[in-house]
Each structure stands twice: as structure tokens, then as C-alpha cells.
Design a binder for these strands. Sequence first.
RNA 1: CGGAGUUUAGCGCAGCUUGGUAGCGCGCCUGCCUUGGGAGCAGGAGGCCACAGGUUCGAAUCCUGUAACUCCGACCA
Length: 482
Amino acid sequence: MAKEKEFVKEITPQGEDFSKWYIEVITKAQLMDYSPVRGCIVFRPDGFELWEACQRELDQRFKATGHRNAYFPLFIPESFFEKEKEHIEGFNPELPWVTQVGDDKLEERLAVRPTSETIIGHMYSQWIQSYRDLPLLLNQWANVVRWEKRTLPFIRTSEFLWQEGHTAHATAQEAQEETLRMLDVYTEFMEEVLSVPVIRGQKTPSEKFPGAVATYSIEAMMRDGKAIQAGTSHNLGQNFASSFKIEFLDKDNERKLAYTTSWGMSTRILGALIMVHGDDRGLQLPPRIAPTQMMVIPIGPAKMREHVVPAAHELVATLRQVGYRVGIDDREDVSPGWKFNEYEMRGIPLRIELGPRDLAADQVVVVRRDTGEKILVPVQELVERVRELLDVIQRSLFDRARAFREEHSSPVETMEALQERVREARGFALAGWCGDEACEAAVKEQTGATSRNIPFDPPVHQKTCVHCQKPATHTVWFGRAY
RNA sequence: CGGAGUUUAGCGCAGCUUGGUAGCGCGCCUGCCUUGGGAGCAGGAGGCCACAGGUUCGAAUCCUGUAACUCCGACCA
């Protein structure tokens, strides 16, 4: 442990102050910086590339499930919000308004979009005439604004980047299938690409999206035991179709309202990625999402550099040729030890060291970010071994995160146990709930924990409500959340 | 938006109590030397002390206000 500490100065250990750790890691790794505008951050290249990687992975999954990308305006007329009462009530407190252009007041105020259900609903009403126009499956990549009272980089910022899918269907069943399909897409992405295990479930009525019939979410546990809602998928039923007159003529020549869905995932997932995998040495990126998967570091005294450095560049070329994202740091003014620590702090999954001794033996030293293990690999076997190692790391990050979540989760029967679980023991509590919002609110008030979701496949089914002890109608995950 | 804290060089901090020429460590620049876990020596650059008022001969320091950030609550991807 003392040895650990020597390696990483400058970063507050997670156990000492998790919030401080988080801020230090994201700033030192140059993922973001604060901007002059309150609550708005700058994505620096290393942070933005992470988002770009997420975009690529998600976008191909959206396309593979039949969706196409489109783009709708940033500004939404005030009257659009008024068409859906619950929607405007939900978002009004955090809407910024454009009221004036130059010196002229606008006829109608324009909201900067917090989400696009209304304006997209309006367009869908014009595009959809017949059952043959359905389903309509669109997605947009956009920035949205919600004027948050309390912000935290990536997790909750006043402006954030996201994707929002919006679909319209002929039947309730199709809409429900779409809603769950996209929740599955999110789940697969989080678990396979980001190595972040998630809990799938339905939001309670008080936590659902304003204007939705049902909201589903995936929830992840951070290393401080708090929850992050990583993605949501909403079945909007006919609510928005009714407000925006999204109607179609069905096969039976009857005029019917469409059923719509929407689903979104934001730059918040970067915060989750960092808080799930990061450790006291800094960031830790799963290989499939890491913008740089491995860093080659040539080592040696000046007289050897003319041999070592070209050999290192050859390695890079070989690895890039087979498709890996490889970096090299051949700077002479920075010591190898400094580089080791730096790239560990930046979370790069593998380090490849090449020094005079390696050159002579036709081998390299490969070091895993997750375990610190050093492995001697003959150059001929490097491509193959790297492939294996990246797979192993991808998997082991997931396993570690899941084990952590399981250790920090437990079923509870009483308020005292729930309190202990979410506050002292820092984690998720699985509790029975009678369905009364008053009981849900009481849990929040007494323990600080909110209902995360009603899981599809809970490890146990609770019989009684954790608060009122009446028969439970649902089994709910509770946890303190970001 | 309420409660608490913070704001001094790129980063981390001292100086403030008791007003009197702005300091330390790291980083940065130059040179030498070095390279297998954050090397060493020498020289150097860098500040409207968050901002705006006030008190004072004189303010980083005292007073008032504002802003940003962090934490704790209420509201939320």
C-alpha cells in the first residue's frame, strides 16, 4: 500500500474523498475543463474522443435496429410545450428562453430544447398519414439544455450532449417492444463496450419522464455506492400523439392515434465510466472504448536510442496495421517512470515497454493497467497476446464492477436496514413497496435514497412494503443517486 | 434555490489574526547531465492576490456586495 502511494502523488485516494478524487482525475487527465459559463463544461480532446467512441458504438447499434439519424431545431416555440401539460410542468423550472433578437422582442418565446418530444411530435404529425408510414424510427445527436441548480462535470451539466431516439408505431404492443428493445441496446452497450454492469427495470410513477406512460432505465453503481441512471427508454403511449395529432389511417380505414417512444443516453455515461472503473491511480478505460488502447514506451540511454526508438516505431506500425489504437511516447526529456505513471493515470489499458534488454532478446514488456502485471512477450507473439490481453481486461473490468455492486447490494425488510445499506454501507437496497407514493417519499426523506427502478429480474421478491409493512406490490432497488 | 466552505503563478498551497515592496513546492524556459517506476545540478520566466465598491497615508490582509467552484439539502439525463 505504501508502495502504491509512491506511484501516485497528486490524486486524492477514493476512500479519503471520492468527490475530490473524481474532480482531480477528470481535470488531470484533461478530459474536461470548467468554462466561464456556470454549469457548462468544455470537453477537451481526450474527453471528447471518449464521447465520440460512445457515439460510434451506439450509432451503429441504432442503425442495426432500423433507425436513421435526423436533426431538429434547437429552439422550440412556447406553444408546443403547452400542448402537453405534464411535460411542461416537468421541464419548466429549468428552461432557458429566447425572448428577444437584436432589439426586437419575439412574437412567441422560444425555449432552448431540454428534449425534443414536442417539436418532433409536431413534425411527425405532418409526416405520418397512413399505417404504411409506420413505424417511423429516427434518432438525433444533439445538445440540450436544462438549467440545473447543482452541477457536476459530465454527470449533470446545464448543457449536455446526448442522443434522443423518437419513434412512432401503429400499435401499443409495437411501441412497448421498441421501448424495451432500445433498453436492451443500451444494456448491451454499457456492459459489453463500457464494461459497466447495469440493472434494468421500470421507473416508479414519481420518477418517470414527464408525459410518459412508462419509463424504463438502466442503473449503474459507482465505486462510492451511489447510483447513476445511465440511460432511459420511455413508452409515451398516445400522450404525445394526442397532443400533437399524430394520426394515421389504418388498414381498416379507421383514423387512429399513433403510439410513440423516446429514449436517450447522454454524456453522463462518461461520468459513470470514470466512477465505475477508476481507482486510486486514476482513470481506467475498458479497451473497447479507450481512444488509445496501448502506449509504446521506448527506454534506454542515449547511445541506445537510435536502435530502440526505430524498433518501437516499427512495433507501433505493426499494431496499427492490425487495427489497434496505439500511441507512442518517445520524448527524451521525460523519464520512463514519469510516463508509466502518466499513462496509468490516463487509464490506458496496456503499456508496452521496449528497452535495450528487450531489443536484444527480441521481446517486449507488456504491462496491464488493471492488475499492474508485467508480462514478457516475444515480439512475434505480440499481436496475438495483445488481442488476448485486451479481451481479458475488458472482461475483468466488468467482473470487478459487478462483484463490487453485488457486495454493496442487499435485500432489506426494514427502514433501519435500508438506511444502514444506503448510508453507512454505501450501496443499493432491494426493498418491497406497496405502490403508495407516500411510502416512496418517506424513504427518500428518511434515508436520502430514491427508488432507482423496479428490476425485471430481482434476486428476491419482497413480500412487504419497507415503509408501511403492508403487502408489497413491487420489489424496488433503492439507492442514493447522482 | 437554501445551509456550509473555498477563491493568491499552469497545479497544490503559505501569507490574512496584528494593514507597510507577494512567497514555497511541483510544473514551465535555458544549459549540462540523465533514461527499466514521477532523476540531478545551475541559471531564468511567470501574479490587477476572483470581481466591484468601501475604510485607510497605505489593503492579498479589515468592511460590504457580486460571481465561480466544492460539499450538504430541495429539483433533475
